[in-house]
Amino acid sequence: MTEEIIIAGFGGQGVLSMGKILAYSGIMQDQEVSWMPSYGPEMRGGTANVTVILSDNRISSPILQEYDTAIILNQQSMDKFEKSVKKGGTLIYDPNGIIHPPTRKDITIYKVEAAEEAAKMQSAKSFNMLVLGAFLKIKPIVKLENIIKGLKKSLPERHQHLMPMNEKAITRGMEIIYEVK
Protein backbone atom coordinates (compact mmCIF):
# COMPACT_ATOMS: atom_id res chain seq x y z
CA MET A 1 0.00 0.00 0.00
CA THR A 2 1.18 3.49 -0.87
CA GLU A 3 -0.99 6.57 -0.38
CA GLU A 4 0.24 9.89 -1.74
CA ILE A 5 -1.61 12.86 -0.28
CA ILE A 6 -1.48 16.61 -0.58
CA ILE A 7 -3.14 18.79 2.04
CA ALA A 8 -3.41 22.43 0.98
CA GLY A 9 -5.01 25.53 2.41
CA PHE A 10 -4.29 28.73 4.30
CA GLY A 11 -1.61 29.09 6.95
CA GLY A 12 -3.28 28.74 10.34
CA GLN A 13 -5.81 26.09 9.26
CA GLY A 14 -3.65 23.39 10.74
CA VAL A 15 -2.61 21.93 7.39
CA LEU A 16 0.95 21.07 8.46
CA SER A 17 -0.04 19.60 11.81
CA MET A 18 -2.77 17.48 10.21
CA GLY A 19 -0.11 16.06 7.93
CA LYS A 20 2.21 15.47 10.85
CA ILE A 21 -0.43 13.52 12.78
CA LEU A 22 -1.14 11.42 9.72
CA ALA A 23 2.58 10.70 9.26
CA TYR A 24 3.04 9.84 12.93
CA SER A 25 0.09 7.45 12.71
CA GLY A 26 1.83 5.71 9.83
CA ILE A 27 4.91 5.18 11.99
CA MET A 28 2.66 3.72 14.73
CA GLN A 29 1.69 0.97 12.32
CA ASP A 30 5.22 0.34 11.05
CA GLN A 31 4.88 2.13 7.74
CA GLU A 32 7.40 4.30 5.93
CA VAL A 33 6.35 7.94 5.92
CA SER A 34 7.41 11.29 4.55
CA TRP A 35 6.14 14.81 5.26
CA MET A 36 7.32 17.57 2.96
CA PRO A 37 5.99 21.07 3.63
CA SER A 38 6.04 24.15 1.47
CA TYR A 39 8.45 26.33 3.39
CA GLY A 40 9.08 28.99 0.82
CA PRO A 41 7.93 32.58 0.53
CA GLU A 42 4.37 31.42 -0.10
CA MET A 43 3.99 30.23 3.48
CA ARG A 44 4.88 33.73 4.61
CA GLY A 45 2.08 35.11 2.45
CA GLY A 46 -0.79 32.85 3.37
CA THR A 47 -1.01 29.51 1.59
CA ALA A 48 0.43 26.35 3.10
CA ASN A 49 0.63 22.83 1.81
CA VAL A 50 2.21 19.56 2.77
CA THR A 51 2.80 16.33 0.88
CA VAL A 52 2.37 13.25 3.04
CA ILE A 53 3.22 9.76 1.85
CA LEU A 54 2.48 6.55 3.75
CA SER A 55 3.79 3.31 2.31
CA ASP A 56 4.62 -0.28 3.14
CA ASN A 57 7.78 0.15 1.04
CA ARG A 58 10.70 2.54 0.94
CA ILE A 59 9.48 5.95 -0.21
CA SER A 60 11.10 7.28 -3.36
CA SER A 61 10.40 10.94 -4.02
CA PRO A 62 8.95 12.98 -1.14
CA ILE A 63 7.88 15.58 -3.72
CA LEU A 64 5.23 14.64 -6.24
CA GLN A 65 3.27 16.04 -9.14
CA GLU A 66 0.26 13.70 -8.85
CA TYR A 67 -1.60 12.55 -5.79
CA ASP A 68 -3.96 9.74 -4.81
CA THR A 69 -5.81 12.19 -2.60
CA ALA A 70 -5.93 15.98 -2.47
CA ILE A 71 -7.43 17.64 0.59
CA ILE A 72 -8.19 21.20 -0.47
CA LEU A 73 -9.13 23.94 1.92
CA ASN A 74 -9.08 27.17 -0.08
CA GLN A 75 -9.64 28.46 -3.61
CA GLN A 76 -5.96 29.04 -4.45
CA SER A 77 -5.22 25.43 -3.60
CA MET A 78 -8.20 24.25 -5.66
CA ASP A 79 -6.86 26.16 -8.66
CA LYS A 80 -3.43 24.64 -8.15
CA PHE A 81 -4.13 21.05 -7.14
CA GLU A 82 -7.49 19.90 -8.63
CA LYS A 83 -5.62 19.01 -11.80
CA SER A 84 -2.94 17.13 -9.84
CA VAL A 85 -5.23 14.36 -8.59
CA LYS A 86 -4.48 11.04 -10.29
CA LYS A 87 -7.20 9.72 -12.60
CA GLY A 88 -9.53 7.70 -10.39
CA GLY A 89 -8.19 9.51 -7.32
CA THR A 90 -9.95 11.37 -4.55
CA LEU A 91 -10.53 15.05 -3.91
CA ILE A 92 -11.87 16.20 -0.55
CA TYR A 93 -12.71 19.85 -0.05
CA ASP A 94 -14.34 22.25 2.35
CA PRO A 95 -16.78 24.46 0.38
CA ASN A 96 -16.17 27.37 2.74
CA GLY A 97 -14.70 30.16 0.59
CA ILE A 98 -14.71 28.07 -2.58
CA ILE A 99 -16.09 30.11 -5.51
CA HIS A 100 -15.25 27.62 -8.25
CA PRO A 101 -16.02 24.07 -7.09
CA PRO A 102 -14.12 21.17 -8.68
CA THR A 103 -15.40 20.05 -12.06
CA ARG A 104 -13.44 16.90 -12.91
CA LYS A 105 -15.47 13.82 -13.77
CA ASP A 106 -12.64 11.25 -13.64
CA ILE A 107 -12.09 11.50 -9.88
CA THR A 108 -14.29 11.04 -6.84
CA ILE A 109 -15.13 14.29 -5.10
CA TYR A 110 -16.20 14.65 -1.47
CA LYS A 111 -17.34 17.65 0.50
CA VAL A 112 -16.76 18.22 4.20
CA GLU A 113 -18.25 21.35 5.72
CA ALA A 114 -15.63 21.45 8.43
CA ALA A 115 -15.39 25.21 8.90
CA GLU A 116 -19.15 25.40 9.44
CA GLU A 117 -19.08 22.43 11.80
CA ALA A 118 -16.16 23.88 13.77
CA ALA A 119 -18.17 27.09 14.18
CA LYS A 120 -21.17 25.07 15.41
CA MET A 121 -18.91 23.28 17.87
CA GLN A 122 -17.58 26.70 18.89
CA SER A 123 -14.12 25.30 18.44
CA ALA A 124 -12.25 26.80 15.49
CA LYS A 125 -9.18 24.75 16.45
CA SER A 126 -11.09 21.53 15.75
CA PHE A 127 -11.22 22.38 12.06
CA ASN A 128 -8.25 20.32 10.92
CA MET A 129 -9.26 17.30 13.00
CA LEU A 130 -12.74 17.39 11.45
CA VAL A 131 -11.06 17.29 8.04
CA LEU A 132 -8.72 14.50 9.13
CA GLY A 133 -11.68 12.45 10.38
CA ALA A 134 -13.46 13.02 7.09
CA PHE A 135 -10.40 11.84 5.16
CA LEU A 136 -10.11 8.70 7.30
CA LYS A 137 -13.75 7.83 6.67
CA ILE A 138 -13.04 7.72 2.93
CA LYS A 139 -9.48 6.36 3.16
CA PRO A 140 -9.13 4.23 6.29
CA ILE A 141 -5.39 3.81 5.69
CA VAL A 142 -4.54 4.17 9.35
CA LYS A 143 -6.44 2.70 12.26
CA LEU A 144 -8.21 5.17 14.54
CA GLU A 145 -6.19 3.91 17.51
CA ASN A 146 -2.99 4.76 15.67
CA ILE A 147 -4.30 8.21 14.80
CA ILE A 148 -4.94 8.78 18.50
CA LYS A 149 -1.39 7.62 19.27
CA GLY A 150 -0.01 9.85 16.51
CA LEU A 151 -2.01 12.77 17.84
CA LYS A 152 -0.66 12.22 21.33
CA LYS A 153 2.91 12.14 19.99
CA SER A 154 2.39 15.31 17.95
CA LEU A 155 0.80 17.44 20.64
CA PRO A 156 3.20 19.28 22.90
CA GLU A 157 2.84 18.63 26.63
CA ARG A 158 0.91 21.85 27.19
CA HIS A 159 -1.77 20.80 24.70
CA GLN A 160 -2.28 17.21 25.89
CA HIS A 161 -5.51 18.26 27.63
CA LEU A 162 -6.96 18.93 24.17
CA MET A 163 -6.93 15.21 23.31
CA PRO A 164 -10.66 14.59 24.02
CA MET A 165 -11.70 17.60 21.94
CA ASN A 166 -9.55 16.42 19.04
CA GLU A 167 -10.84 12.85 19.24
CA LYS A 168 -14.40 14.12 19.22
CA ALA A 169 -13.65 16.26 16.15
CA ILE A 170 -12.15 13.28 14.27
CA THR A 171 -15.25 11.18 14.98
CA ARG A 172 -17.55 14.04 13.98
CA GLY A 173 -15.56 14.58 10.77
CA MET A 174 -16.25 10.97 9.81
CA GLU A 175 -19.99 11.64 10.08
CA ILE A 176 -20.25 14.82 8.05
CA ILE A 177 -18.37 13.96 4.84
CA TYR A 178 -20.44 13.19 1.75
CA GLU A 179 -19.85 12.46 -1.92
CA VAL A 180 -20.62 15.12 -4.52
CA LYS A 181 -22.25 13.51 -7.54
Binding site: K20, A23, I27, E32, V33, S34, W35, M36, P37, Y39, I59, P62, I63
Partner: peptide, 10 residues
Protein backbone atom coordinates in the same frame (compact mmCIF):
# COMPACT_ATOMS: atom_id res chain seq x y z
CA UNK B 1 19.62 20.70 0.75
CA UNK B 2 16.34 22.37 1.60
CA UNK B 3 14.31 19.23 0.82
CA UNK B 4 16.20 16.93 3.19
CA UNK B 5 16.50 19.66 5.82
CA UNK B 6 12.81 20.60 5.88
CA UNK B 7 11.27 17.18 5.28
CA UNK B 8 10.09 14.93 8.10
CA UNK B 9 10.62 11.20 7.89
CA UNK B 10 10.85 8.46 10.42
Amino acid sequence: DGVIGQMMEK
